[in-house]
Computed example of a mutant assay.
Amino acid sequence: MQRNDGEIRRPSLSLPILRTARRQHRAGTLTLGSLLSALGEASFGWAIVVFSLLTLLPLPPGSSLITALPLLVTTAQMMLGYPHVKLPGRLARLRIDPLKLRRTVLRLRPVTRRLERILVPRYKTLFSRRNERPLGLFMFVIAFALFLPVPLSGWFPAISLFIIGVGIVEQDGLVSSVGLVLGAASVLLTATILTSLAAGAEALIH
C-alpha cells in the first residue's frame, strides 16, 4: 500500500489471520488446523503467532493448561528438528471462536503497529538450520512457563512468544531476539512466583 508521502506501507500482520478466519468461518470450516494450513503450516512462525493469540483469548482462569498445549507441541517439534508443524488430530479439529479471535488481535494492535514499523529481514543467522533446535528449546521453556497455571504470569510469556513468532515470520532476528529476552524474563518471573507460593505454603504448614 502506498502512502501520500511516497513511503511504502507494509501490510498489517493481523490481516492474513483475520481474513482467513472470516473466510473459513463463513464456509463453516474454521478450525485450528485449517487456519494454520491456510496461513502456511510449514512455517513454525505462523504456528507460534496463532497459538500465542489463542492463549490470549478471554477465557476462564486456568485455561492456559489447554491453550498452551499447541505451543508446547509446536516448540517441541521445532526442538526435535521436524521440517514442519504436525498437529495431533484432536488439536487440528479444535474449533475457534472468530469473534474472540478478532477481539484478541485488535487488542494487540498497539504491539503489532510498533512491530510493523520496524520489521525488516535481518540477522537471519538466528533462524539458520543449526540454530533451529536451540531456538525451539528456548521457546519450549517459555511455553512451559505459560502452561503452568501461575497467577499473574500468563500474559507475559504469551506476548513474548507472539513477538518471537512474528520475527520468525518476517525473518527479523532482532525482533525475535527481543522476544527471547522478554521470554527469559517471563520464565524468571514465573519461577519467582512459584518459589514465593511454595515458601508461603510451607510457612502455613509449619
Rank of each mutant, 00 (worst) to 15 (best):
R10G: 01
P11G: 07
S12N: 15
S12W: 10
S12M: 10
L13M: 12
L13T: 02
L13F: 13
S14F: 11
P16T: 04
P16S: 06
L18N: 07
L18R: 14
L18M: 14
L18T: 07
R19M: 06
R19C: 00
T20Q: 13
T20D: 13
A21H: 05
A21N: 04
A21L: 00
R22K: 10
R23C: 08
Q24M: 12
Q24C: 05
H25M: 03
R26Q: 05
R26K: 03
R26H: 01
A27G: 06
A27E: 11
A27I: 00
G28S: 03
G28I: 03
G28C: 05
T29Q: 14
T29I: 03
T29S: 12
L30T: 05
L30I: 04
L30A: 00
L30Q: 09
T31V: 07
T31I: 06
T31N: 09
T31A: 11
L32R: 04
L32H: 00
G33M: 06
G33Q: 01
S34N: 10
S34H: 09
L35W: 09
L36W: 07
L36R: 01
S37A: 14
A38K: 14
A38G: 15
L39S: 10
E41S: 15
E41I: 07
A42N: 11
A42E: 13
A42Y: 00
S43Y: 03
F44Q: 05
F44A: 03
F44W: 01
G45F: 03
G45S: 00
W46K: 11
A47E: 02
A47F: 08
A47Y: 10
I48S: 04
I48K: 11
I48R: 15
I48N: 02
I48Y: 01
V49C: 10
V49T: 13
V49P: 02
V50F: 01
V50N: 04
V50D: 09
V50Y: 05
V50W: 03
F51G: 01
L53Y: 06
L53G: 01
L54S: 04
L54D: 04
T55E: 09
T55D: 13
L56Y: 08
L56G: 06
L57D: 02
L57K: 06
L57M: 15
L57P: 07
L57I: 11
L57S: 04
L57T: 08
P58E: 14
L59H: 02
L59M: 13
L59V: 08
P60I: 07
P60Q: 06
P60R: 02
P60Y: 11
P61H: 15
G62P: 00
S63R: 09
S63H: 12
L65N: 07
L65I: 08
L65R: 12
I66S: 08
T67P: 00
T67K: 03
